Amino acid sequence: MRVNRILLSVPLVVVALVIQVSVLARLHLPGAVPDLLLLTVLGLAMVYGHVGGALIGFGAGLLADLAPPADHAAGRYALVLCVIGYLAGLVKPETGQIKSATGPMTVVVGAAIGSTLLYAGVGALVGDTAARHVGLTGLLFSAALYDLLLAPFVVPGVMFLARRAENDPLGETGSGSKSSDISSGWLSAGTGLRIGGQRGGLKLRAAKSRATRAGRIKGVKRL
């Protein structure tokens, strides 16, 4: 991953985890807990792609596994968010711009349901049957509902910050990587064409100036 992606992802993940543990987990809402960490990973994955989404998801999940009060085996949520981040990164648009909110909201609902099922499935493999006692159906419904209500306030902001980080000229490693970068269209539209236009205008002016001077010299010779 690029340095600018790491510098942005780490603070966002840490802030999301702190808010989720210290605020959202203490609301004692019926069913699941609103997963702010999941929404942050989704927003980054839909900008950085499947590889970046998987790496960020694994790191965020591992941090959540180790953060108190952790009541499950370490690596369980890291596996869940790694898979979810990878799948969410696959829906990244080629142009880097999402024109409708339907796609991201569908991803949020699918990720909320998929992460709950995957978390419960991994727990069943290691002998954790807490999901059975709480009720898996209620967990799925509440997780999808809470995340869907929270998503408009989190996902667009995360994606906006991620795109701004991608548009940083200092983060470009070479001209060859701009074609696959999400901000390549903005860079070419915002700077490249203007610079090219200025250079073309300067060349055209220089050519006109030389032609004018040549005409004046010929006119002097004719006189």
Rank of each mutant, 00 (worst) to 15 (best):
M1Y: 06
R2Y: 12
V3T: 12
R5N: 09
I6G: 03
I6C: 10
I6F: 14
L8Q: 02
V10S: 07
V10Y: 08
L12T: 03
V13H: 00
V13I: 13
V15W: 12
V18D: 15
Q20Y: 02
Q20E: 13
V21S: 13
V21T: 14
V23E: 01
L24F: 09
L27H: 14
H28F: 13
H28T: 09
G31N: 07
A32Q: 06
V33R: 05
P34W: 01
L36W: 04
L37F: 01
L39T: 00
T40W: 01
T40S: 02
V41T: 12
V47K: 02
V47F: 07
Y48Q: 11
Y48S: 04
H50C: 07
V51R: 15
G52D: 01
G53A: 03
G53Q: 01
G57R: 00
G57H: 00
L63R: 10
L63H: 09
A64W: 00
A67G: 00
P69E: 13
A70K: 11
A70T: 03
A73H: 05
A73C: 02
A74N: 03
Y77C: 04
A78I: 05
L79K: 08
V80N: 00
V80T: 03
L81T: 05
C82P: 04
C82F: 08
Y86M: 06
V91I: 14
T95S: 14
K99A: 06
T102N: 08
M105Q: 15
T106Q: 13
V107C: 10
G110N: 05
G110R: 04
G110W: 02
A112N: 01
G114L: 08
S115H: 01
S115Y: 00
T116N: 13
L117R: 09
L118Y: 05
Y119M: 07
V122E: 06
A124M: 09
L125K: 02
G127T: 04
G127V: 05
D128P: 06
T129H: 07
A131Y: 10
R132T: 09
R132K: 11
G135T: 06
G135R: 12
L140M: 12
F141T: 07
A143R: 02
A143L: 09
L145T: 15
L145G: 13
L148A: 10
L149I: 05
A151E: 01
V154L: 07
V154M: 04
V155L: 06
V155H: 00
P156V: 00
P156A: 04
M159I: 03
F160T: 04
F160D: 05
A162S: 03
E166P: 15
P169Q: 04
G171V: 05
E172N: 10
K178I: 12
D181G: 12
S183Q: 14
S184M: 10
G185L: 14
W186V: 09
S188D: 07
A189T: 10
G190P: 04
T191M: 06
T191A: 06
G192A: 07
L193D: 08
R194N: 09
I195F: 14
G196C: 06
G197N: 13
Q198I: 13
Q198N: 08
R199V: 14
G200S: 12
G201W: 11
G201V: 05
L202A: 13
L204H: 13
R205I: 10
R205M: 10
R205Y: 09
A206N: 11
A207R: 15
A211Q: 15
A211H: 15
R213T: 11
G219W: 13
K221Q: 15
L223S: 14
